[in-house]
Design a protein around this nucleic acid. Structure first.
Lengths: 358, 358
DNA sequence: AGACCGAGGGTAAACGTTTACCCGACAGGG
DNA sequence: CCCTGTCGGGTAAACGTTTACCCTCGGTCT
């Protein structure tokens, strides 16, 4: 009972004559049922063919099904599948602030590598608010997301619960405050040490640091790595040369006011991230200090605009594109479920030096 | 038949004693059925209460239902609802490139204002590729999204089809290439004119423009507005002073090479966006030209970093936060379906002048 | 007293998939 | 000739909601 699909002359429908969407059946949208009828098989067979269940379909049947699906422009309704499987091809990305270039770049990378694996990304701004994070964690479960990429995780009751529930979570850039889970990011401790080594190799022994919030593993580790390397070289910064600047432009500026008020200021400053470095730079400009001539500055993250608007800023370069791939692979490992996946290789970083005569 | 929920002593479950999640029933996750049993009513009643269908529930019953739902930590599975209603609370944002600060800022704004209305955002990078845009348009329909915000729309066969299918689409920043739909954005023509007026009022008559892709209504209109105002003042730019720079850093740089090679260069340049202006600026730096002393530059979009890293750049400021609200309201208007919603008021813009002695 | 009505709430039928079973046919081995 | 297995494929039961009907019970109107 293959027969022609009964085209009920909707005038606009006839206008477009692509390969697919030859004819819209009378009913609402085309479902698996329509495909089955057109191919002259049962819906079970259609489902099996389209899901690639081999050994269940004669080649000829399979071809008929695929043709029918194609001609009708059939797309499985995700809702049905989600209901049955209690699972979607959705992955949620929880992110502190999408308008931060660092996070945005990672988000883009994750989106495209998820897409390459036929998954779709839901974006949620947590604002680093534990309550909002918990809300989203629950809400995403209600959507039956297949996994979560948690960028800039904060500690929250729901996070531990979600981990206990075996919800696949990849912690990006910041390690889970409550332990457990798989981490994707660079070795921040090593990065901090690398910055210190660089400063020392340039002969700067009078260093300062504007560190980020220490509850963030990323900030803390790079801070500690920096300090430890300096201490080992006997060049530990004096107390007033260690200030907190958050991760913001304003924080950097405020920290700079503290750091640079003495006539004898540090010669080299390690900033929690590039934004902080921009804040510091503004203060330098105000004081007439040239960077890096009068004062060496090292940022973190390597904002993609640096080459264009901040050619004075040396910074730690992060492999943005690698994040997406690593996150996706981490999730896949969890899905394929070889028990507890070992922590993956940390991503590589590198120092990007700018503005120096070298 | 209210009865205690039968707590099957799962040790971890007892650990957390928040108000909700007192006890996980034996079965998998708690559904509407569990709530109904606990409240001693039918699932229909639960559904009605939770959906705020008044006049169907005794106050006392309603209280019992809400209590039960709360105690169990019930969250409706979106899949079931999506299946029944053929509708979710998902809104897709199609965006050319999330790592572009301009788009990212708008994305953030849209996300938060959708959240305020209890909707969730799906983010899709179209890369301005018509095929990818079409793919997402279809895929999002398969997810039964309730609406789409299309940022930087390009012309594609699927777009017209989606509009014909009455899919609620808000066109953000760039008007639909195929007509129809509702637009959210500023009056780009007026903005272009405003820039021209500003240049003229400063006495610059030797102006140039680096325009964006003219298939984009945003780029085209601001370009045309700028030119028309200049023409009316009898100061139309010479042919070589009109170049295309795309919307990228590299494009701006390349355009600047063309524009600034003569010893006699234009005194004022209007750039398609801030990125282009950064590219231009790099060339200026190479040539030893000071901005804005030797050459006035006007960007577009007002990148949030400008105050910090580009204090030399005057630009057209866009009300990022207003975008989210306007998009959401536009969608709501479509949903509430008062026929064809009139085009909303364009968003306000303003000139942000920097670096001038004033 | 019978008709009618509204309030409150239960029953069951969708919605569109996936998949555990079941079944018929045919082949090969004993 | 029977038994067993495999191939190919159909039947129907979930999955978790929403909502069109239906029902009961008082109260009110005629």
């Amino acid at each position: 009972m293959i027969g022609q699909a009964h085209t009920r002359g909707t005038p606009e429908a006839d206008a477009q004559s692509t390969a697919r969407a030859i004819a819209r059946p009378a009913g609402r949208s085309i479902g698996i049922q329509a495909v089955a009828e057109r191919a002259g098989v049962s819906i079970a067979t259609v489902s099996r063919v389209l899901n690639g269940i081999k050994s269940k379909a004669n080649e000829e049947t399979e071809a008929r099904v695929r043709l029918a699906a194609d001609e009708l422009g059939y797309r499985p309704a995700h809702a049905g599948r989600a209901l049955r499987l209690r699972q979607t091809k959705l992955v949620a990305l929880l992110i502190p602030d999408i308008s931060n270039a660092f996070y945005a770049a990672i988000a883009g990378s994750i989106e495209s590598s998820l897409r390459a694996r036929d998954h779709t990304m839901i974006l949620c701004n947590t604002n680093e608010d534990p309550r909002l994070q918990d809300f989203y964690l629950e809400e995403m479960q209600a959507y039956h997301v297949r996994g979560i990429a948690l960028l800039g995780a904060v500690d929250s009751p729901g996070l531990a619960a979600a981990l206990a529930d075996k919800l696949p979570i990849a912690f990006v850039n910041r390690k889970p405050p409550c332990g457990g889970g798989v981490f994707v990011g660079i070795d921040n401790h090593a990065a901090g040490r690398a910055v210190a080594s660089h400063f020392l190799s340039r002969g700067y022994r009078d260093c300062a640091v504007i560190h980020g919030p220490l509850h963030s593993s990323a900030s803390r580790e790079r801070f500690e790595g920096f300090l430890s390397a300096l201490r080992e070289a006997g060049a530990a910064p004096a107390g007033p040369n260690i200030v907190s600047g958050g991760l913001s432009l304003e924080g950097g500026y405020a920290a700079a006011r503290l750091l640079l008020k003495a006539e004898r200021h540090p010669r080299a400053i390690f900033c929690a991230n590039d934004l902080v470095a921009y804040g510091l730079f503004r203060r330098c400009r105000e004081l007439g200090l040239a960077v890096p001539r009068d004062i060496a500055v090292m940022g973190f993250d390597d904002n993609p605009l640096n080459d264009w608007v901040a050619p004075w800023l040396s910074t730690v370069h992060i492999p943005y594109d690698a994040f997406g791939i690593a996150v996706t692979e981490a999730l896949v490992r969890i899905w394929d479920g070889a028990g507890e996946p070992e922590a993956a290789e940390p991503l590589p970083f590198s120092l990007r030096l700018r503005g120096s005569a070298e």
